[in-house]
Simulated assay, not measured.
Amino acid sequence: MTKSNPFKFGSVVDEPFFTDRNNELQKVKNVLQSPNHLILISPRRYGKTSLILKAVKALHRSYLFIDLQLVTDTADLARQLLKHIYRLFPFEKVKQYIKHFRVIPSLNINPLTNEIDISLQPAFSADFLLEDVLNTIEKLGTPDKRIIVIIDEFQDINHIEKGLDKKFRAIVQYHKNVNYAFLGSIESMMREIFEKKKSPFYHFGQIMPLNKIPEDDLLLYLNERLTEVCSDKEAGLQILNITKAHPYYTQQLAFTVWDICRADKKISNPVKCATDYLIQIHDIDYERLWNNQTQTDKKVLIALANNESNLLTGTVLNNYGIPAASTAYSSLKKLMNKGLVLKSDTGYQLDDPFFAGWITMKRNSIFQ
């Protein structure tokens, strides 16, 4: 019997937890082996980060990874990039480039973390620093060993500073020794950045949407790992019926089912037990999330929790007290930008199936 749980979620996934994605992996590698740039788009927790890092490691290339959601301003972006440069290249080599910066930062090694601490003088130009740092990455790369710069949640670039996309594009458009990989979780915003003609990044690279793993492949993956501990042969299918094949939530539910079954292999309906458990442990988080929504947004969330994917039809709007399709659409757009709602070929759905379950459970408990 497997000694440890074979399912993993919540962090970067690699072998043996990496699930399929062989075609997508090859496509990513193909782009990064060319002089072109990659734009990878998918909802949060679909596995973008795991996929890109697996590709980079397979190519044996140096890379930098920045998450724009954690960046506070232009200077902070430059500092974070510079820290990554120091992790990749010898200290003395990098110093030779920094001494030519227009804004020369003070560098110290933190004795507790062994990381570089970067401080800047007052009234410095953050734009000059960012340009010098990005151009240093270009100088450290070569045509045969291009550095890969991965920037996650790239749709947030103008939240950091208005017009930062124009400044960034003006610098990197001349780079030949770097592959840029821009990852984003809000498709509408990413497509506006890379497909709108007036955008600075119009047609900057190869756009690649990352879809769900095909259900048949995911079911096979689940069944192979659940069989040894779970007597319920329908468990894998039941998991997918709840998670709708969302990669993160499928792994999370399967992980919990595996643990429950290992403790009691003959347990009745382990998927329901696992689902109830996950809803229960996130009760406070879901309550806080619910209370932060407007009344209209709550009505939309209730409808989606009840699997009303065609929310904009007159009958559905009337049933949930939503005054007009335009009102519902505005709410959906806002909820999608928050990452709470996804749009697919079949309509709209809640991203988190356990939040949907929480809404249904709470509303049903009112009438019990």
Score class of each variant (00 low, 15 high):
1 M>V: 08
2 T>A: 13
2 T>H: 12
3 K>Y: 13
4 S>E: 12
5 N>T: 00
8 K>S: 14
12 V>S: 08
13 V>R: 03
14 D>R: 14
15 E>V: 06
15 E>T: 04
17 F>T: 00
21 R>H: 09
29 K>W: 06
32 L>P: 14
34 S>L: 05
34 S>M: 07
39 I>S: 06
42 S>T: 05
42 S>N: 08
45 R>C: 05
52 I>D: 14
53 L>V: 03
54 K>V: 04
60 H>T: 03
66 I>Q: 11
74 T>V: 15
74 T>Q: 13
75 A>T: 01
83 K>L: 03
84 H>R: 02
85 I>C: 13
85 I>W: 09
90 P>N: 01
96 Q>G: 14
98 I>Q: 09
100 H>P: 04
101 F>N: 01
102 R>D: 15
104 I>Q: 06
105 P>R: 05
108 N>P: 02
109 I>K: 13
109 I>L: 12
112 L>R: 11
112 L>V: 05
115 E>Y: 04
119 S>P: 04
123 A>H: 14
124 F>E: 08
124 F>C: 12
125 S>W: 03
134 L>F: 04
137 I>E: 07
137 I>Q: 08
139 K>N: 09
141 G>A: 02
142 T>M: 06
143 P>F: 00
145 K>S: 12
148 I>Q: 07
150 I>D: 11
153 E>K: 02
158 N>V: 03
159 H>C: 02
159 H>L: 10
159 H>W: 02
159 H>P: 01
170 A>Y: 01
200 P>F: 06
207 I>N: 13
209 P>L: 01
209 P>F: 01
211 N>E: 14
214 P>N: 10
217 D>V: 07
218 L>Y: 15
221 Y>D: 08
222 L>D: 06
228 E>V: 11
234 E>M: 08
235 A>E: 11
241 N>V: 00
246 H>E: 05
253 L>K: 05
264 D>E: 13
266 K>T: 13
266 K>P: 02
268 S>Q: 12
274 A>F: 00
289 L>Y: 06
296 T>I: 08
301 L>T: 08
302 I>A: 06
306 N>P: 10
310 N>M: 14
318 N>A: 15
321 G>F: 09
323 P>V: 08
326 S>H: 03
335 L>K: 03
336 M>A: 12
337 N>G: 07
337 N>R: 04
337 N>D: 15
338 K>T: 09
339 G>R: 01
344 S>F: 04
345 D>M: 08
346 T>Q: 13
351 D>L: 14
360 T>Y: 15
361 M>V: 02
366 I>N: 05
